[in-house]
Each structure stands twice: as structure tokens, then as C-alpha cells.
């Protein structure tokens, strides 16, 4: 399902009330022109899955935090924020989860600058 980011939380809450109580994964894909954040939720009783896809503008990428609905969103959101520079609004800023570096940029975006040795390798 495609959705707007303003409708995202309503969509998630609607799904939650329909029994989709398990958050499987939040991930993002960089299509260069747009970013896409994907929320996968699951109904544990019936073993059914739903996807919510939110299109984002790479220069103004933010989504509301889903932690209000799913506690499991915590680390997924932090990972997404770190890897795609998609700001998560409505939750406190946290330290970096996966990376221990001082560089800048979003590693999993397609325009991420590779480090020097790799460029030389090519």
C-alpha cells in the first residue's frame, strides 16, 4: 500500500487495530529521485503481512516515529536514520546505533562517497 507520510501513523494504527500487531521491519530504498520508506507489519494470528510504502523527497526526508504504535520500531528507525539520513520526528535524538565513525553522509544512499582506496581499486 502506498501512503503519505502524514497518513503513515493513522495507517499503522488502523492496521494495528485490525490485528497487525507485529512490526516485521522498517527499511528504506534509495531510488535516487525519491526515497522510499517501507513498513512491513504482520498479523500473527492469520500469518498475513501488509506493507506501507512512503515516498519521500531526498532533500527533505523525514517520517514520523512509529514508536507510539510499535515499540519494535525503535532500532529500525535509528538504523534508517543513520543509513539513509531520514529524520525520524517525534522521538528523542539518539546516539548512532551501528556506526562508530566520524564521517558524514548516509552510507546506504546511492550518492554516498566511497572511500579513497576503493576509488583507486576501480
Amino acid at each position: 500500500m502506498k501512503t503519505e507520510r502524514n497518513e503513515l501513523l493513522n495507517g499503522l494504527e488502523g492496521l494495528y487495530s485490525k490485528g497487525y500487531t507485529y512490526l516485521v521491519k522498517i527499511y528504506a530504498v534509495d531510488y535516487v529521485k525519491t526515497l522510499e520508506a517501507v513498513y512491513v507489519v504482520r498479523n500473527m494470528e492469520e500469518a498475513k503481512e501488509e506493507r506501507l510504502e512512503v515516498e519521500l523527497d531526498p532533500s527533505d526526508a523525514w517520517v514520523p516515529s512509529a514508536m507510539r504504535v510499535y515499540k519494535a520500531a525503535d532500532w529500525y528507525e535509528r538504523e534508517m536514520q543513520e543509513m539513509f539520513a531520514i529524520t525520524i520526528k517525534g522521538r528523542q535524538a539518539e546516539r548512532l546505533l551501528l556506526e562508530k565513525w566520524n564521517g558524514s553522509g548516509a552510507p546506504l544512499r546511492k550518492n554516498f562517497a566511497w572511500s579513497e582506496p576503493y576509488e583507486k581499486m576501480k
Binding site: 500487531t21 507485529y22 512490526l23 516485521v24 500473527m44 500469518a47 510499535y70 515499540k71 519494535a72
Partner: peptide, 20 residues
């Protein structure tokens, strides 16, 4: 309830009574 909401998986989830 917590196990589902926290999204734990595998044996940890099944030990909490979710037969998924």
C-alpha cells in the same frame, strides 16, 4: 503482548507463548 509489540522473534517469541 510485550513480545509481539517488541517484535522479538524465533525461540524468544515462542517461549512467550506465540506459536508463530
Amino acid at each position: 503482548e510485550d513480545a509481539i509489540n517488541l517484535g522479538v522473534t524465533g525461540p524468544v517469541l515462542r517461549a512467550s507463548g506465540v506459536g508463530y
